[in-house]
Design a protein around this nucleic acid. Sequence first.
DNA 1: GCATTAGTTGCACGATTGTGCAAATATACA
DNA 2: TGTATATTTGCACAATCGTGCAACTAATGC
Lengths: 116, 116
Amino acid sequence: MVKPPACRTKLRGLLNTRLFKALGDPTRVGLLAYLAERCAPLTVNEAAQCCPIDISVVSRHLAVLRDAGVLEAAKEGREVRYSIRYPESVKLLRDLADALDGCCPINPTKRKGGKR
Amino acid sequence: MVKPPACRTKLRGLLNTRLFKALGDPTRVGLLAYLAERCAPLTVNEAAQCCPIDISVVSRHLAVLRDAGVLEAAKEGREVRYSIRYPESVKLLRDLADALDGCCPINPTKRKGGKR
DNA sequence: GCATTAGTTGCACGATTGTGCAAATATACA
DNA sequence: TGTATATTTGCACAATCGTGCAACTAATGC
């Protein structure tokens, strides 16, 4: 048994289509980038300033990103502040990169350093 | 000016919707995972063994992944061998993680190590 | 109570997408 | 040449998705 079976299930588990589906729309990544640039939790109204679309659409897009695990919502009074889940998002991307990198033993990307 | 504008353009540039669109379909990620598990370039026929769908659909999906930059195609005679572009894919995921991680100065994911 | 503001949800419509079948293209072999 | 195999492409259809409008819910202030 040459190929480690652990990496398979890990890679399969990390390849969550819901996340990529969420990031597959230009309006949504525009919202995500806007949130990242503003460096602060934004309300739906504030996030809507990023692009000329209806507030209801923005609300739906933010909900999609929240369901995908990229954002988290915090209700404050009558407004909701959406913020990026940095630790989880970054970790997921790094884990995915590591899983893809370490899946094939004869991988040309073979890093010279350690695990991290 | 507190927030570095360099990270913005970097993040925007890395948030390529075509890549995420390609990874947003379960059949395509199934093909990608199958390629990763087999640890070798596969023909369309071989890749089609991963799931019970028509070969033409597999061909189209592989083309989508190729156009997204995840796979590369090498024509050998009358068959085409698709393989994962490990270095580029892994680097893109790591760059995206770094860009997201380093975008906001007051980022809770604040890494203890250096830049890389 | 009523009015206002913030956000979500129902509905409809147009656009995109995934799929299978058949036809077309390309390469190898007799 | 003709035949067989591998892959791609045209076409049609169903399903999903993004969008805007209106209606609805929730919370604040009069």
